[in-house]
């Protein structure tokens, strides 16, 4: 690729990304009434999208070969349990990460 072609490619990547972020707001600009069905989705999607995002993080985890995704699954379980118990956001996140890093080296 020439320099110009690289620049164009980057511009296209930026444009594509911007489309995915702006489209909902372009469809429903300020002042335009949001129909009930979209309002319903706007209320349900945040939780659904968060759950989707959590699964998304596991997309590269290989469950069928050693170590069967165990470091990640155990660390994730640790985060869930510790967070429900202590409710300390930073502790759950950094504690879970420490557990994951240790497990990664054990397995």
């Amino acid at each position: 690729m020439t320099t110009a072609q690289t620049a164009v490619t980057i511009a296209v990547l930026a444009l594509g990304t911007l489309i995915t972020r702006a489209l909902p707001f372009i469809c429903f600009p300020e002042g335009k009434k949001i129909p009930p069905i979209i309002e319903y989705l706007a209320n349900t999607l945040p939780c659904a999208a968060m759950a989707f995002l959590v699964v998304y993080c596991f997309k590269d985890t290989k469950l069928l070969s050693y170590p069967y995704g165990l470091p990640k699954i155990i660390a994730a379980a640790f985060v869930v349990v510790v967070h429900l118990w202590k409710k300390n956001t930073l502790f759950s996140i950094f504690g879970g990460t420490a557990v994951y890093m240790v497990l990664l080296r054990i397995f």
Binding site: T9, V12, L13, L15, G16, T17, I19, T20, R21, A22, L23, P24, F25, F28, I34, I38, L41, A42, L45, P46, A48, A49, F52, L53, Y56
Partner: peptide, 20 residues
């Protein structure tokens, strides 16, 4: 490049609708 960007980032549509 455009298709790749749209597919990988399509999940942002969810975020946009959630934040409307």
């Amino acid at each position: 490049a455009l298709v790749l960007a749209l597919i990988i980032n399509a999940r942002h549509l969810f975020y946009g609708f959630s934040m409307l």
